[in-house]
Every structure is written in structure tokens, then in C-alpha cells.
Amino acid sequence: MPHDHSDGPEHSHLSDIDARVRALESLLSEKGYIDSAAVDEIVDTYQTKIGPRNGAHVVAKSWTDPEFRNWLERDATAAIHSLGYTSRQGEHMQALFNSDQVHHLVVCTLCSCYPWSVLGLPPTWYKSPPFRSRAVIDPRGVLQDFGINIPDDVSVEVHDSTAEMRYIVIPERPTGTDDWSEDALSKLVTRNAMIGTGFALSPAEVS
């Protein structure tokens, strides 16, 4: 292949990392291990179709449907699957229920495992080394950084995700929402609330 070293500003330039990604994609698709159209489809799915809304649906249903809540407690993988949210990675899901006695916080100290099927892609802070290490050592301090103060008489439990087990936190249902529909309730459920770094929003915060 002739080398052309006359690449001035009028020519293109690839960053080294971009060239590495292109090398992988072109080689792997030539060999038939991946299909470029399928790769684009996956990007689109994770960016637009999967996201915290799926998890918010799970939470809102658990608030309004006691039978679903029981199922979620017994077998979260199956209960979540029943709503059409299936993990492509095949890991198990466990639901963690916040109450006036316990606040759950999810972390992955190993490699940033995340419940993609219900929460989409993880936020940058979830993948950052300070969050991953501090959440275990000083969970209350981390929660304060997120503006969350947990009273001393409420215990904080930290759950370390693995490749096989992912968690979704079911936050407490906000007060003043007794007559709310499942759809309206789901709008109160933030991604952070389902990781444990936030609470569900109050009606006043969305009105």
C-alpha cells in the first residue's frame, strides 16, 4: 500500500483510539464475527430505547400492584422480564426495597457492572474510581455528596454488583401520591433513585 505522508490540514486525521476501533470493527466484520449494521442497531437501542424509563416502570408498578411487588421480591429477574425488559447479558436481577429502616446503595467495585436492561447505560460517575471505592468505605459521605442525608437510625446497605447479579433499588413511594396512576408515578422515579444515590421526586418537584 503506498504511503502518502503529505497529510496537511486539507487531509483527514484519525485519533489513535479511533483507528484502533476502526481496526477492530473492520477486521471482526470481515471475519464474520460481527455485523456492522447490528453494531449500529445496538448503539441505537441502548441510547434511545433502553434507559431509566424501563426501571421507572418497574418501580411504579411495584408501588401500585402488591402482587407484582411480591413477585419482584421473590424473583426480580422473572418479574422484570414479564414487563418485556430482558437482559442480553443473562445476569440475575435483585430488587432492593428502601424503607424507613434501610437505605440501599448499589455499586460495582469490580468493573462497573450495571443493570443495563432497566437503567440503560451507566452515568460517568458510576464508573469513576472514587465512587467505586468510596461507596464501600464511606457510603453516607458519598450520599451526602449527592445531597442525600440518611438519618442515623436508618441503616445504609451497600450492594456490590457482579457479572451474575445486578440490583435495582426500589425507592420509597413519595407521600401525597395515593391516587396517582402508575404512569404518573413513573415520572417521579429518577435513575439515581434506582441506584440509591437519590430519592424518588416529590409531587411538588414535578408539578
Binding site: 485519533s15 483510539i17 479511533d18 476501533v21 477492530l24 470493527e25 471482526l28 464475527y33 460481527i34 455485523d35 447490528a38 453494531v39 449500529d40 445496538i42 448503539v43 441502548y46 441510547q47 434507559g51 431509566p52 442480553r88 447479558q89 440503560g120 447505560l121 451507566p122 452515568p123 460517568t124 415520572k187 429518577t190 435513575r191 439515581n192 433513585a193 437519590g198 421526586l201 414535578v206
Partner: peptide, 26 residues
């Protein structure tokens, strides 16, 4: 609503490609 849109999931296109290649290979 806070918590839903505070940052993009991928900062650059190559990150999305690298992410999706792993999912596709799996």
C-alpha cells in the same frame, strides 16, 4: 427531570462503537 439527562452516555462515537462491539460479540 433530574437524574434522566444530566450527561450524555457516550462522550465520543468511538465509545459507542466499542461498547456495541462487545455486546454484539457476546
Amino acid at each position: 427531570v433530574p437524574g434522566f439527562e444530566d450527561e450524555p452516555v457516550f462522550e465520543e462515537p468511538w465509545q459507542a462503537q466499542a461498547f456495541a462491539m462487545v455486546v454484539a460479540l457476546h
